[in-house]
Design a binder for these strands. Structure first.
Lengths: 213, 213
DNA sequence: CCGGATCCCATCCGATACTG
DNA sequence: CAGTATCGGATGGGATCCGG
């Protein structure tokens, strides 16, 4: 343990010792969406070697950040209350990193958990409160998300359901979230493809989810 | 660059690519206190190898987080506005890590920059507003800090000056900040040693600086 | 000195293969 | 499905060296 330790008695160094290793905070990010099985985590982090995932899970468990729960023949990993306290930090880091996102590269993928957290980051509860409850079905690359906004509360789940507006988009949806592209231009340029429902609901979506770039 | 890249198009991964490397966020932490020279950074991060420090400075510079400023024969590193936006994240991570700090080990040191940031994390402006302006001189291991509280504003600098209360303490001061130890018991047990001024001002200090454990 | 660059070794990570 | 085992290459740690 002395090797990876920073040798300082300081809250920041302690925090980094617990979740500063490569991949660790991304595991936390995905677990913030919900409990996950080993294979689900591996699928959501496609480039993580399995030995690293196994090692991180053990370390995070030893650090009291996550818990390994055997549940009816399968093993589930979930955040402890202490681990859940990382949520504002992960969201803030996501908002900070969002500003440095350029255009997507060919080899960069979108996962449903990362998009879910991005939506939570971009969600503006006070704006949403002024708008009628709305359900969106977003097909974002391989992820199919059901986004339900009701007043100041947001609920994002995987899968399908009844929606007011269904659309598909690629990584370029960032430009809609950042306001770089208006909803109408997003549709005109093909960044967003409306599948079902009135296209002007995309404006409501863009006002509900916004992140500075 | 493809090696250390996470392969996802996501704000969190982007943020981690910029400041997620080992030591990077600690360099940011120290620069949040103020601009620093190479040697000052090296002194504040005693276990960092010089090649790593040099490499991180270049990477952070390329990432737009810090700036290298030649100033009258010496080179100064300082945060860019974008880098300064990391402050709430570093403070939040420090508060989170604070909860996982046990008792200090022999080989763990305290630096003045890390203590300065810890004080900023623990500072409670709304409490301080109700108290008279106060200057503290804190001798924390090798760090001598001049802590000036005036209403909701906090100013921490290195060095000496006129103070209302001067005290010295070691790493155990964490137990005072966390409330685990009351001011009187902190003095009685020798955790805090009052050097000058009325000892009851330590109570004011403890109310001004508090962090949950 | 200050601000690094270089070298060498230990450790960690990534890719793939394998197992209960 | 949930991990271990293994191995080459990348990265970090520590010491030393160099140019201004």
């Amino acid at each position: 343990m002395a090797a990876r330790d920073y040798g300082q008695y300081c809250g920041v160094t302690r925090g980094l010792e617990l979740v500063g290793e490569r991949w660790a905070l991304l595991i936390v990010r995905d677990l913030l969406v919900g409990p996950r099985r080993y294979g689900e985590l591996a699928a959501g982090l496609p480039r993580i070697p399995s030995n690293i995932l196994a090692a991180r899970l053990k370390e995070l468990q030893a650090a009291g950040v996550i818990r390994r729960v055997p549940r009816s023949r399968v093993i589930i990993y979930e955040l402890t209350p202490y681990g859940r306290e990382l949520e504002p930090i992960v969201l803030a880091l996501g908002a900070w990193g969002f500003k440095a996102m350029g255009d997507p590269r060919e080899d960069q993928i979108i996962t449903s958990d990362s998009m879910t957290m991005a939506l939570r980051t971009a969600f503006r509860p006070q704006v949403a409160s002024t708008l009628p409850p709305t359900a969106y079905g977003a097909h974002l690359g391989p992820a199919e998300l059901l986004i339900r906004v009701d007043g100041p509360t947001l609920d994002v789940t995987r899968g399908d359901g009844p929606v007011d507006l269904a659309f598909s988009a690629g990584p370029q949806i960032r430009r809609l979230i950042s306001g770089e592209l208006g909803p109408d231009r997003a549709i005109a340029t093909g960044v967003v493809d409306v599948l079902r429902g009135p296209a002007d609901l995309l404006d409501r979506f863009a006002r509900t989810f916004h992140l500075a770039a």
